[in-house]
Design a binder for these strands. Structure first.
Lengths: 149, 149
DNA sequence: CCAGTAAGTCGGAAATATGGACGTACACCC
DNA sequence: GGGTGTACGTCCATATTTCCGACTTACTGG
């Protein structure tokens, strides 16, 4: 018999989405990348319900993507900071933004522009780390698995 | 007064997430990128509830990311194909996968590898289209808006 | 005729999301 | 000292979604 029913794939995409696979999680991250590290600020800038944002931030902190740290004792105030793994989610955010800029602006200018430290507007492209070529879906194939011996 | 309450940002990330900002939508896209274009196959490989997948596919088709086309009349069979805008979501998928491979494999090998047509394992990196440098969050700033006159 | 597959739809229970009010702990100002 | 405002949540009741299993339709193949 062939692998007949193929359980749900446990790939890295699925695993990653367990952590960031929800609108408010990614929008909270967007805010932190933009420098807004405080709860109320995130509520305002994302439009997320306070409860939901609380839950998402907890997940992100538990996953080690954000760190919640006190910035003042009296009054008690906190901020959420990106950890290294959090910083490494930047490509996810920018590729979402890039796509929206291309397909969802309906002719008008993108609602926000980013400037790279090279001085130019950031245009983010995904390239292959081996050959440096722009990655197109049609140029990529899943590597066949070796049979389990 | 300063822009006191700052309505939720309507940025491209938020707009994009209205379409793909949910686990099953992105996993369905992953499957299509892997070549599985059929409904039942997506159900099996993603583990999504059939209803939910139906709903997500409808959204994706409505957004023009996928196209639902008949592949047989008798019996009626359909497949979902990526449109150009759908193909351009590839960077989102690969950057999610890249991150999971880095942070969620717990020491073991990634559950799936991709091969680029250059012959090497695909390592996807996001670079600035102007200077070619790898994009790091700390090297990017939002461009200040011109004041509305 | 029976089994199987593909592509959904349906219904009802369970889980989540949402919005508004509330709580706490201050700071600022008069 | 009292009133107002901000930050960071929590709580509750309702609304919406999700989830699962069963069912439907339309065939093919034996």
């Amino acid at each position: 018999m062939t692998t007949l029913s193929a359980e749900p794939r446990n790939c890295s995409v699925a695993r990653t989405l367990e952590i960031v696979g929800e609108k408010w999680a990614l929008l909270a991250l967007r805010e932190v990348f933009l420098g807004n590290r405080r709860f109320d600020e995130m509520v305002r800038k994302t439009g997320a319900p306070r409860d939901t944002l609380t839950a998402r931030l907890k997940t992100l902190v538990a996953a080690g993507v954000l760190e919640r740290r006190p910035v003042s004792e009296h009054p008690p105030r906190f901020e959420y900071r990106l950890t290294q793994s959090g910083l490494d989610l930047y490509p996810v955010i920018v590729s979402l933004m890039e796509w929206g800029d291309r397909y969802l602006t309906n002719g008008s200018a993108p609602p926000m522009e980013l400037t790279h430290h090279c001085g130019h507007r950031l245009g983010a492209v995904t390239v292959c780390s081996s050959c440096g070529e722009v990655v197109l879906a049609r140029d990529v194939r899943p590597t066949p698995l070796r049979a389990t011996p």
